[in-house]
Amino acid sequence: MELKTKSTVIIGGSATGEILYFDTPISFWGGVSVKTSKVVQKGHPQNGEATANKILVIPNLIGSSSSSAIILELIYSGLAPKAMILGNHDAIIPIGIIAAKQIGWGSIPILTLKNPDFKTGDWVTIFPNGEIRYEEP
């Protein structure tokens, strides 16, 4: 059976990939290493997981104002996630992505979805209209 869900598009785009689900709140600044893309926030359940090339599902993103610089740096160094599905509205990550687009380093889709119901290891495809479809692994 095919499963679909519709999210709100903040930055449009397409992506297919594996979900990394964040069980507790995370701030990109101080929480994700720009050198390795790994989660480095002390005591975080996803500590040690690489974020590069994953579709990140973050029900609760903490909006540190330096996070725009962190996502820009990840895109610049080829360590960006494939997409992000956020549980709360955030402008700080999108600002970093707009900056990356402006300078020609590429872009990734950013969507918002209340209470996103995914788990780590799920495979999904994101469409430019905000549709998210589950894929067979």
Partner: peptide, 17 residues
């Protein structure tokens, strides 16, 4: 402006642009 603190090369290149 808070963006003058170095987090990595990308921010430098963006501001120089």
């Amino acid at each position: 402006v808070d963006g003058c603190l170095y987090h990595g090369d990308s921010g430098v290149l963006y501001c120089e642009k």
